[in-house]
Simulated scan of single mutants.
Amino acid sequence: MLKGFEHVGITVKNIDRSLAFYVDLLGLELRVRRRVFNGDELAFLDAKGPMLEMVCPATGALTAEDVAIGRAGVRHLTFNFDSVDEIYNILLDAGVDIVEPPRDAHNRDIARRVAFCRDPDGIMIELIER
Rank of each mutant, 00 (worst) to 15 (best):
G95Y: 06
F5G: 03
A64D: 11
K13G: 13
F116Y: 15
C117Y: 01
V67H: 08
G60Y: 10
D85H: 12
E41L: 05
R130L: 00
Y22S: 04
L19S: 11
G60T: 11
L45N: 03
G122T: 05
V55N: 13
R34D: 09
P57I: 05
A20S: 15
A72Y: 11
H7Y: 10
T78S: 15
I125L: 09
I98T: 06
A47L: 02
R35G: 09
D97E: 13
V99M: 05
M51S: 11
L28S: 10
K3E: 13
T78L: 03
T59R: 15
L25M: 13
P120W: 08
I10T: 03
H7C: 03
I10R: 03
L19A: 07
F37D: 13
V23L: 06
P101M: 04
G27V: 07
I87T: 15
T78I: 02
R103Q: 09
D121K: 04
E41S: 11
G60N: 10
G49C: 11
L19K: 14
V23K: 15
V84E: 13
D82N: 14
A20K: 14
E100H: 04
I69K: 13
T78Y: 01
D46W: 03
N107C: 01
N38Y: 09
A61L: 06
E65A: 13
H76Y: 13
E100F: 02
A111F: 14
M51N: 05
N38A: 08
F81T: 12
I98L: 10
R112Q: 14
Y22M: 04
H76E: 12
A68R: 15
R34T: 12
I110N: 05
S83G: 05
I128R: 03
L28K: 08
R113L: 00
A94T: 10
D46M: 00
I15D: 04
P57S: 11
V8W: 00
A47E: 03
D40T: 05
E126N: 03
V8F: 05
R33I: 01
R75P: 02
I123Q: 04
D40Q: 08
I123D: 02
V23G: 08
L127K: 00
L45R: 00
A111W: 14
D40H: 12
P101I: 03
R113Q: 13
E86I: 11
D104Y: 04
L30P: 00
D97V: 12
L2E: 05
A43S: 14
L127D: 07
N80I: 08
V8H: 07
A58T: 12
A111N: 09
A20P: 04
P57F: 07
V99W: 01
P101C: 02
L127Q: 07
L2K: 08
E29Y: 02
M1V: 09
